[in-house]
Structure formats: structure tokens, C-alpha cells
Amino acid sequence: MEQKIPTMAEMAAEGNEPEILFWVGCAGSFDERAQKITRNICKILHHVGISYAVLGTEESCTGDPAKRAGNEFLFQMQAMVNIEVLNGYNIKKIVTGCPHCFNTIRNEYPGLGGTYEVIHHTQLIQGLIDEGKLKAEGGESFKGRKITFHDPCYLGRGNNVYEAPRAALEILDTELVEMKRCKSNGLCCGAGGAQMFKEPEKGNKDINDERMLDVIETGASVIASGCPFCMTMLTDGVKHMEKEQEIKVLDIAEITVRANGL
């Protein structure tokens, strides 16, 4: 990547404190597709000149999948170690690239001694649009393309964030079409609750295939989302339906970067 990504350790060594910590998350760190989204979030932060840093090798899983799977021990071990690191760096504000990290740090860390202002990257983007720092100009045009937004469960129902990701799409010169199951009625991609890490139980179809029916019904050529797990599930769904030529799955951060030519 062109820009140098600042880490907390380096910043602290220089005696600096960033305005915001970018919590990358495991998918954002290791999953090849999600890594692209991570880099795009950094491009946005860099573009608007926010002082930020990442934890890098000091970051560890928030413990979300362990908690959803019922392993509260492991969750709390992860949480307490992370909280120690975050508090050690005197972190006040966090932006995450993943709704699961967002939910866990925002809602489940305070009870264990970690209280921060936590936002999801779509909320960061919405804020920057509202402040006039981000527009949709100088980049790829989405004109004439139908876009639909898939609500990640832990962003939407889990935390009532429905408008932020849509705000990032509404500034595009494009048509935002809603699926019949959207917002609080949104259908899960099938990855939550630690399902990402196991085979689904026996059934008659996969949940992401069911979701593709909603997508295809809208006639959208872009599915936007804001979650690395949804990204995997939706991308697989598009493949199963053999719609790779017609339908692209993009994160809100990627769409923002493309629209602004960053």
C-alpha cells in the first residue's frame, strides 16, 4: 500500500496519541478480500486527514465468535487482554471495519472495564459526508447502476444502525433499491453466531442462497454491505447462482473509495 500505516506502538513511542484507533479485526487482517476493505478504510482516513493508528500485531480477536458460540471463558480472556492494551494506550475513540467487532467492543467491553466511543466505518463515512469532507466526485461513476444494501445483523438489528450505510449510497448518482427483507426485517447472510466457522446444520438450502433470491428480485447490479462475513457469504451466494458477471459485492468503504477516486 502506498501510505505508511501508523501503529499505536510507533505513535506512543513518539509521544503522540491519534484521534481515533482503527480496529481492523481478524477478517480485515487475514482474509484476502477483507484486507482490500481494510486498505480502503485507511485510504479514506488518510484522504480526510484524520490522525489514526492501528494496533497491528498487538490486536487480537475481540472474542465475538467465542461468545456467540457459548465460550464465555475464552471471550472474557480475549476481552480482558484487549482492554488492557487499549487502556494502556489511553484509547478514547475506535472505528471498526466489522459489525461484530463494533458490537462487542461497544456493548460488551464496558462491563469488563473497557469503555470507548465506538463507531462502525459506515458511521465514520456518514459523519464525513455530513461534514462535507467526503463527496462522490472525481472517481468511478455509479450512474445508472442499481445498488441494494444488505443489512449486517450486528449493525442493523443488533445496534439499530440502518441509516449510516445508506447515507454513503445516497450521495452516489444511482438508484438505491431495497430488498423485500431489509432494515429491521433484513435476512441474515448465515455467518453470524459463529456459523462462519462451522458447516451449517442439515437443512434444505444455504441461508446465503436464500438471500440471493432477495437480491436478484431487486435487479441490483451491486450488493453493498459493511461486514467481512456478509461479504464472504454474499460473494459465495453470487457464485452459486452463477451471477458473477451481473452482480458485484462491494463494501461501503470500497464504493466510497471508488466514487472519490482515492
Binding site: 481494510t38 486498505r39 497491528g56 500485531t57 487480537s60 466457522f197
Partner: peptide
């Protein structure tokens, strides 16, 4: 727990991620 979830727990305990990647590689994306 189902075996695959036990694997996930093991990865998280050993290398701080639900997948088997080294903690030292966490910033490779950059």
C-alpha cells in the same frame, strides 16, 4: 461444541484469531 468450533476456539487461544494465522502476520495487509 462441534469439532469445527473447537478448532476455532483453539486458534483464538493460540494465535488470537479464529483462523490459523500467525499473530505476527496481522499487519501484512499493510
Amino acid at each position: 461444541a462441534p469439532a469445527s468450533l473447537n478448532n476455532m476456539f483453539g486458534n483464538m487461544e493460540n494465535n488470537g484469531a479464529p483462523w490459523k494465522y500467525s499473530q505476527a502476520d496481522r499487519l501484512n495487509w499493510a
